[in-house]
Design a protein around this nucleic acid. Structure first.
Lengths: 148, 148
DNA sequence: AGTTACACGTAACATTATTACATTTGAGTT
DNA sequence: AACTCAAATGTAATAATGTTACGTGTAACT
């Protein structure tokens, strides 16, 4: 069994990046699937890609995704009901992240904007609303798809 | 049959507001259901509330919702897979709208912020991304629920 | 009447997500 | 080593959300 839970995996594939050394087997598989995909994957997309790795039920995928999202290693795209690996190599994302999702090619661009964050903070301060999680998704076409 | 398609409805209920005079029967029913609800409703919530009005299948609800959202009379909350009536009386919402969703009481606050809109516009201009639709949803607790 | 566009009705189905319950694993403790 | 607790896993069944396909009704226009 490669990709074991003990963290002694020797990166046999030659190009897999080790994102974190304490992922469980299922979490590693799911994050791997996301990282190798150009576009976001639905939980069932992931399930289908990991059947040969022993993943058999949706719940296994959803549980892994929960943990990955919780740790910021993956993100959920609400407007797509799909998931992506975090684009930030070291996952030091400060706060609010915005996603630009191309409806042409499916690629997702991830960016942060502190001004927007401040603006939302100001609104929250004014109304007494306590924000716990905010999602921001722009749907449209990327430059490449607009040109083509 | 009240709420007929011909627009001659006389507001028999005494407190229903006429949002637009050219809604079809199903659209009127769906918008009415949303407008009378404190919290967002899922398509199936709406379906259940309108069974006695002759609505029998999900598709009838989804079709009406599509039109209402298209016209800005209702909004879809992606992070909830649910819908709300537009809070703006005259539906003159300029552009981007943000939603603050209270996970305590379920109420949704709707607001616009031109600075955020400008910021996103600047990002789009910089990358060549053409935005068609953007969703922004803050999940958390409203002042009332934080206090309680 | 013929044609077109749009809304509607109905059934079947596809996709996304969760509940319930049993089992295994790993880490720390005695 | 045996004990124990928390976390992760395995599996089946089911719930919730959304769509496809196909036929009908209705009003406007020609």
């Amino acid at each position: 069994m490669s990709h074991s839970q003990d963290g002694h995996d020797h990166d046999h594939s030659g190009h897999d990046h080790v994102w974190a050394d304490d992922l469980t087997k299922n979490q590693g598989l799911v994050l791997g699937a996301l990282a190798h995909s150009e576009a976001p994957l639905s939980a069932y997309d992931i399930l289908d890609r990991l059947r040969e790795n022993g993943i058999k039920a949706p719940l296994q995928v959803y549980r892994a995704l929960d943990k990955l999202v919780e740790r910021g290693l993956a993100h959920r795209l609400e407007s797509l009901n799909a998931f992506v690996a975090c684009a930030d190599e070291h996952c030091h994302r400060s706060g609010l992240i915005a996603f630009a999702i191309c409806d042409g090619c499916g690629k997702v661009d991830e960016f942060a904007d502190s001004v927007i964050e401040d603006r939302l903070g100001a609104w929250a301060a004014g109304t007494g609303f306590v924000a716990e999680r905010t999602t921001m998704e722009i749907r449209g076409k990327c430059a490449v798809c607009v040109a083509g």
